[in-house]
């Protein structure tokens, strides 16, 4: 005669998931010793749990040709990356900075930034406003001019990608000139923004100096983790 029905399926699941207290666990373990059917039920539940883990141990990576699903989210959400990063950095400890309040005062910013060691700075642009594009380039140049061993990256996403798009940038020559004078500067485009624009049928040819990263947020996270100074324009 089996005692297995004494234990509900919910209780056995809770046992498998370590949700029971010591006394309840003892009761089940004691019963299992003399009840093969109960042991079988537990074995099947545990197998089901292991199989689920096994089935998603390795999941396929995305190979995007076009961003076919983005349309169901609003453009505002997709464009919130900037706010995201600004809030993130602020929340993280108020030690990074936004350059929003410092347009036209790149020199003052660089004075403050030279305190950073090692000399690595990531400048993030997400706006196509010409004064913000210019501020990003001013800041990069000022920093490169003053710290010869500096590494500077300008990363552009959302509307800021216009800085690096061949058809839209007003600064193609200036970018080429900066790059020709400084080996340690990089101009980086957000791959996700590019995919979104491609999905909308837009031409997204970049200036020759631009490299592409998968997503701006991942790049920023990686650089900050590596100790770079992050500045959002």
């Amino acid at each position: 005669m089996s005692d297995a029905k004494v234990f509900s399926d919910e209780r056995l699941n809770a046992f498998v998931d370590n949700e029971l207290g010591a006394q309840e666990c003892d009761e089940i373990l004691t019963a299992v010793a003399t009840d093969a059917e109960l042991g079988q039920r537990l074995c099947e539940l545990r197998s089901a749990k292991e199989l689920v883990r096994h089935a998603y141990g390795r999941v396929p990576q995305v190979r995007r040709q076009a961003n076919r699903h983005l349309s169901f989210w609003s453009g505002a959400l997709a464009a919130s990356l900037t706010l995201t990063l600004g809030v993130l950095i602020g929340w993280l400890g108020h030690q990074s900075a936004t350059a929003t309040e410092s347009h036209g005062t790149a020199a003052a910013w660089t004075e403050r930034l030279f305190a950073a060691e090692p000399a690595r700075i990531l400048i993030h642009l997400d706006s196509s406003r010409s004064e913000q594009m210019e501020a990003a380039l001013d800041l990069a140049e000022a920093y490169l001019a003053k710290a010869s061993n500096a590494r500077v990256e300008v990363i552009a996403n959302n509307r800021g990608l216009d800085l690096l798009r061949a058809r839209t940038t007003p600064y193609a020559e200036r970018i080429a000139e900066i790059r020709s004078h400084h080996e340690r500067v990089a101009f980086i485009a957000c791959g996700q923004t590019i995919a979104r624009l491609h999905g909308g049928g837009e031409d997204v040819a970049l200036v020759p100096e631009a490299a592409v990263t998968r997503t701006a947020i991942e790049h920023v996270a990686e650089r900050v983790q590596q100790g770079w100074t992050y500045l959002k324009i």
């Binding site: 993280l92 990074s96 930034l113 060691e117 996270a221 900050v224 100790g227 100074t229």
Partner: peptide
């Protein structure tokens, strides 16, 4: 200006 350990851990 460098990120703190807390920043790096959260990132």
């Amino acid at each position: 200006w460098l990120p703190s350990r807390e920043q790096r851990e959260l990132m």
